[in-house]
């Protein structure tokens, strides 16, 4: 999304919020008194309009299942299991403009990384477009790169030849896959990744990313902690069937 005019600053009262549609995408704009914020207009849980929820000037709550977010960052609070996609807001002559931010800023694993390191990672990221049905990697491929979903949908299958099974899918901007690229003992892919629809991915060389993180150990520790949480989440619970 390019920079788009969305409304006048006076259209949204203090501690108020409104939804606007920009090129078919719903965008929620909230007025937190001193500052305006813009996020995806639909709850990432069940596509409920967030402007039907509650906003007290600092916390946004979806009325359906009480998922909550910090209005300054879009980070999940309390029950929420996913952050909100944030848009940068610019105010110029009393008019509000929004700009879509980089998918890297929506990556859970990178959310407390320093600005300098994030910008180095931005430079490493190659933006690639994939057609529907395109294979990102196959089982047993080397695990050189890590991927961040910008748009579209990627599915994973495990197993060999005709005995395969779907092993999850990704559809949110900022979701990371192929993170074996950051692990030392995992040289081969264990799943196949296919784009289920036309998708845009950011591709980052795992070795180069580790070097950037080594140069900023505080950020590196944060990333490693998040990575271990991610792995634990995927491993939790016995496998059935």
């Amino acid at each position: 999304m390019q920079k788009e005019r969305i409304c006048s600053a006076t259209d949204i009262p203090d501690n108020g919020m409104k939804t606007y549609e920009i090129k078919g995408v719903k965008v929620l704009v909230a007025n937190a008194g001193e500052c305006f914020y813009a996020y995806q207009g639909l709850c990432p849980h069940q596509d409920v309009c967030l402007d039907e929820g509650y906003f007290d000037g600092s916390v946004l709550t979806c009325h359906q299942h009480l998922w909550q977010w910090d209005i300054r960052t879009g980070e999940a609070m309390g029950l929420a299991e996913a952050p909100l996609e944030k848009y940068e807001v610019e105010v110029s002559d009393g008019e509000l403009f929004v700009v879509q931010s980089s998918a890297l800023k929506a990556v859970e694993m990178l959310k407390d990384v320093s600005a300098a390191t994030l910008s180095r990672l931005e430079q490493l990221a190659k933006r690639e477009e994939y057609d529907e049905g395109a294979v990102v990697y196959e089982v047993n491929d080397p695990t050189d790169d890590l991927y961040v979903l910008e748009s579209g949908r990627v599915e994973f299958t495990i197993g060999r030849e005709d005995r395969t099974r779907l092993a999850g899918f990704m559809l949110r901007k900022g979701e990371v896959f192929g993170w074996a690229a950051l692990l030392e003992q995992s040289p081969r892919r264990i799943a196949k990744a296919i784009c289920h629809e036309k998708s845009v991915l950011l591709r980052i060389d795992g070795g180069a990313m580790l070097e950037v993180l080594e140069a900023d150990p505080a950020s590196g520790l944060v990333v490693m902690r998040r990575l271990s949480e991610l792995i634990a989440r995927h491993m939790s619970g016995p496998q059935n069937g």
Binding site: G168, F169, M170, N240, G241
Partner: peptide, 11 residues
């Protein structure tokens, strides 16, 4: 077969 975000369930 239920395809969930994280895995597939069969019953």
């Amino acid at each position: 077969q239920v395809n969930a975000r994280n895995r597939t369930h069969l019953f």
